[in-house]
């Protein structure tokens, strides 16, 4: 278990022990959330990750009052959710999963109707249409929009209120590469303007680029939460890839010094290495000249796959419910809190 400390900030989202079971008319039951916890502090761009069916969207829907939780406590901007959501709804922008709009309305009309319902001036509609790149397509019917354009419209609807908290479920879904980059820039701009962003996505490279904090959920439970940089450093094993002409002999030399070594076809990987210069000196001293010495730093994708147990294995077809269920058997939780470890 890993413990990291950081400065106290005010919580914008607090979720504690959230439980939700979906039941069918035939008596079936599926546990979507099994005591899930999450905290998002003010000013964070917080990534929310999990395999398919892990409970991300259910969490966001429960937080926004669209799904009734069976147990647990939630608060948004300091107010209990969902009971006190109306008091803060004007400060929260959200899109949840694939946003669906009424196909026969134009994008502009859709936003104007929402603006009317929320008491937002109509001038704001033009601003957000411009912001998401739909200014010139706002008078087209939504049913003619591509998935990416609908996604942009959804983001526009979330931005209409100039929210303090933005909750985005798969905002890059359907976006083209330019759209993904624009979304990334948009979130950075919002973060710079002190908007707290909670974003769920499967594009882990994007999350790593955009987010400063991350929570990973698997089968309805939290497996990890903390600053992205510290999460990654927590999984940094000090590994380096070494390429050298006689790589098997070189590996024996390094292994002889007591370091863990894994030999591959044309290189080897050495772990627990505090100073890479030591490898150069040691092998150079024996007449073996290094052609490559590359640090193997973990990325969010590898951490995610490792923690959730969803890494593909040759010859097997992983099923949705094969993800790791955090608990007594696999205590993978990495909690980053102020003060003590949890």
């Amino acid at each position: 278990m890993l413990t990291v400390r950081f400065l106290a900030m005010s919580a914008v989202i607090e979720i504690d022990g959230l439980r939700k079971t979906f039941r069918t008319l035939r008596g079936g039951a599926r546990v979507a959330l099994d005591g899930f916890d999450m905290t998002v502090e003010a000013g964070q761009v917080h990534g929310f990750l999990g395999p398919n069916g892990s409970g991300k969207t259910t969490t966001l829907r429960a937080l926004l009052g669209l799904v009734h939780a069976d147990a647990g406590r939630m608060a948004v901007l300091g107010r209990q959710a969902p009971a006190e959501l109306p008091a803060v709804a004007g400060r929260v922008g959200a899109i949840v999963e694939s946003p669906q709009f009424f196909g026969n309305f134009t994008g502009r009309r859709t936003l104007r109707l929402l603006a009317t319902a929320g008491g937002v001036p109509h001038e704001r509609v033009e601003e957000v249409l411009d912001q998401v790149g739909l200014r010139d397509r706002g008078d087209e019917r939504v049913k003619g929009y591509s998935l990416g354009m609908k996604q942009r419209l959804a983001v526009a609807s979330a931005l209409l209120k100039q929210p303090e908290l933005l909750i985005l479920d798969e905002p890059a879904n359907g976006l083209d590469p330019a759209g993904i980059r624009e979304m990334r820039d948009l979130m950075r701009d919002l973060a710079a303007a002190n908007v707290t962003v909670l974003v769920s996505s499967h594009i882990l490279a994007e999350i790593q680029l955009i987010c400063d904090h991350v929570t990973i959920i698997s089968r309805g439970r939290r497996v990890l939460s903390g600053p992205v940089s510290e999460v990654l450093s927590g999984f940094d094993k000090g590994e380096y890839r070494v390429r050298v002409a006689e790589h098997e002999r070189a590996a024996e030399v390094i292994r002889g010094a007591g370091l863990p070594v894994t030999v591959h076809d044309d290189h080897f990987v050495v772990g627990d290495l505090a100073d890479p210069a030591w490898v150069s000196e040691t092998l150079g001293g024996q007449g073996m000249w290094i052609r490559e010495l590359t640090p193997l730093t973990p990325d969010l994708e590898s951490v995610f796959l490792q923690l959730t147990g969803t890494e593909p294995e040759p010859g097997t077809h992983k099923q949705v419910d094969d993800a790791v269920r955090p608990g007594a058997e696999h205590d993978l939780s990495v909690t980053v809190v102020e003060g003590e470890a949890k």
Binding site: L64, G65, L66, P82, L85, P86, A89, A94, V96, P99, Q100, F101, F102, L114, A117, G118, S157, K161
Partner: peptide, 11 residues
């Protein structure tokens, strides 16, 4: 899904 969108504005 129009109702869901509306409820995000007026919960």
């Amino acid at each position: 899904g129009g109702m869901t969108n509306l409820l995000l504005w007026r919960p």
